[in-house]
Design a protein around this nucleic acid. Structure first.
Lengths: 208, 208
DNA sequence: GCATTAAGTCACCGTTTAGTGACTTGATGG
DNA sequence: CCATCAAGTCACTAAACGGTGACTTAATGC
């Protein structure tokens, strides 16, 4: 039969997709064999048969996802054009694109919130992807180590701040008088990135 | 009887304290009537009798706690001495004290993680305290609004970054090549605060 | 000393969870 | 056409959850 009603591979995919749907719709606190099986429309025993249990299914889900902005995405699409920009411009562009990249990935936001609470196959996956990709990006494009100031600390502080505010904004509107339900609030933050980068750039020039 | 074995007020306090203990030891995902009653060593029915249920108990807990650095704490102890410092110094000191103040409050860290997941009496409490206190602090000590640059956006970005890294560091060691299990990593971040503040201060001078 | 009130105990309910053994039934090769 | 194997169904367990009614018993006023 070409399109059998019983299809192991198709069922596996249904389960893997259901993980993302439950995460997006109910959050990680409601993620479990029952909820995923219900969402996928299959029996939960298949989670144990095909993945050995929930951790295995989560691991499989983690290997399929697009959880983190790619290098191209952070660079704004054209890597070669990005490479020749001055450091100040590079950092501003990266900041903006990081913000945009995380904001458009609700699943990543959910996993970031999860990282604060628990270690598991999925949070470890995101952790590794982020760390390797950010370090590689810095190595390729930012002249880190040659600088007189700790650029990575500032970049980290900024990235962490954006991550926090994005995750937080899903449930809480205001932060420090900034309205995160309003586009104007996010404009202020983009502006804040520019301010920080410009300021640090001046500092670097002054110390040369 | 002076010290009755049956003492409503003492039992109320046991329950309220148990909330903090469960939060600190097991995390908010394991907080519930059963766990709190077990921790307090009393029957869970008393949670309903004295507080009307878990939300009421959580609310009572929220009103007893020291969840946020006070103004004095952020100013470094001596408010009058703080008041006369230049803005650059004020921001650096506030940043350091904010970092220290959140790092020494594991319960606050847990509630901050909770804020990413759910709204409830406790997260709302922390939300209100933080927002009013930070705005009041800015109003009293930072000349916000009179400046040519959006100081509050930069301060918010920095505070959010520190909050994120503190909460995250409870379970994940590395961020952007910064080792958060090592005191040296936190030193780099303090240094990063200084860099940002100095940079933005120069920008403000340049724009005057 | 006795009756009243409320502090505290306990057994139970219905629901949800993770996990398993036994079953039915569809697809496939010989 | 039939036997085999695995895909999928189902019923069940044990534990944990939030929540409630009925009970015992200690403290208190009279």
């Amino acid at each position: 039969m070409k399109n059998p009603t019983r299809n192991r591979e198709a069922t596996r995919l249904k389960l893997i997709n259901a993980v993302g749907q439950v995460l997006a719709e109910k959050g990680f606190t409601h993620l479990g064999v029952n909820a995923v099986a219900r969402q996928a429309g299959v029996d939960k025993v298949l989670i144990y048969r095909y993945f050995g249990g929930m951790p295995g299914l989560i691991k499989a889900f983690g290997q399929e996802g697009d959880f983190w902005p790619s290098m191209e995405e952070l660079a704004g699409g054209n890597i070669d054009a990005y490479r020749v920009l001055p450091l100040e411009e590079k950092l501003k562009i990266m900041g903006r694109n990081y913000l945009k990249g995380i904001r458009k990935r609700p699943l990543t936001q959910e996993i970031m919130a999860w990282e604060m609470v628990e270690r598991n196959n999925l949070t470890e996956e995101l952790e590794i992807i982020r760390e390797t990709r950010m370090l590689r990006f810095a190595e390729l494009f930012l002249q880190v180590g040659e600088e007189t100031v700790d650029v990575m600390a500032v970049v980290g502080l900024m990235g962490a701040g954006l991550s926090y505010l994005i995750c937080r904004s899903r449930r809480i509107r205001w932060y420090n008088g900034i309205d995160l339900e309003n586009q104007e609030g996010w404009k202020r933050l983009e502006n804040g990135i520019d301010l920080v980068v410009e300021g640090v750039a001046r500092l670097m020039q002054a110390r040369d």
